[in-house]
């Protein structure tokens, strides 16, 4: 199972970085989401994998590590906040400038002229 998790982390990282290197704001935001998935999964798996051992006192003797879970839980919520800010920035740029390119030279009819 560890192999599957490692493959997933690698794949999510790769897709995230590939999308972040695109030239429009929307794929960059998607890429950031993928990278957040990868990082969260990585931090979580740093607690090592264990099944049927949720850290609830009284239900198990040797639980999985609760600390990375607490870290990742707040990280998930914070990354939502961050994504929302970036989405708003991208929207603002699009409405203000009329293009959604992330590079100064790309994607604008005005700029190209």
């Amino acid at each position: 199972m560890e192999v599957l998790f490692a493959l997933t982390i690698g794949l999510l990282t790769a897709v995230g970085i590939y999308l972040m290197l695109r030239l429009r704001s929307f794929p960059v935001i998607l890429g950031l989401t993928f990278l957040s998935y990868a990082v969260n999964l990585f931090i979580f798996s740093a607690g090592r994998l264990k099944t049927a051992a949720a850290p609830i006192v009284g239900t198990v003797e040797a639980p999985t590590d609760p600390l990375p879970q607490a870290l990742v839980l707040t990280a998930i919520v914070i990354s939502f906040g961050m994504t929302a800010v970036i989405v708003m920035m991208a929207l603002g740029a699009w409405l203000e400038l009329g293009h959604d390119g992330t590079d100064p030279a790309s994607g604008t009819p005005e700029d190209r002229g």
Partner: peptide, 24 residues
């Protein structure tokens, strides 16, 4: 871009695997 992304992904995956296959 794909080559760089793949390199980063392989690195992240290997690191995660190395971590998960060791005891703390």
């Amino acid at each position: 871009d794909a080559a760089l992304a793949a390199a980063a992904g392989i690195g992240a995956g290997l690191l995660a695997f190395a971590l998960m296959t060791r005891d703390p």
